[in-house]
């Protein structure tokens, strides 16, 4: 099972879990499994058409899936998936 690292802003949707084990052989299946178990994550990660939102990036290991095969990127059982949302804080 691959591991998804949940960024701190989204942990309120995963019962504060920072790492979640997911099943699936591709990123799409893994995200599907993740949002099945934590449905509140869905609107933060996916648009109405089920595509990853443009302000959320997904990496498998160190690689941006947009430089691999996007949602079809294949996973290994020891793959680590990082979800990196846009954040904008800094001044106030």
């Amino acid at each position: 099972m691959a591991t998804v690292i949940i960024p701190t802003p989204l942990r309120k949707f995963t019962n504060q879990n920072s790492r979640v084990q997911v099943s699936g052989s591709s990123v799409q299946e893994a995200i599907g499994d993740l949002t099945l178990n934590f449905p509140d994550l869905k609107k933060n990660l996916l648009d109405e058409n089920g595509k990853l939102r443009s302000f959320v990036n997904v990496f498998v290991g160190e690689e941006d899936i947009r430089n691999l095969q996007n949602e079809q990127t294949q996973l290994q059982p020891d793959s680590t998936i990082s979800i990196i949302p846009a954040i904008a804080g800094g001044s106030h």
Partner: peptide, 25 residues
């Protein structure tokens, strides 16, 4: 190249709304 477009308003709060651990900055 990283984030082509911003999140829709309201989905991602700023620090004034969401807070920040003081030592983090």
């Amino acid at each position: 190249d990283l984030y082509p477009t911003p999140p829709p308003p309201g989905l991602v709060p700023n620090c004034a709304e969401g807070g920040v651990l003081g030592v983090l900055p």
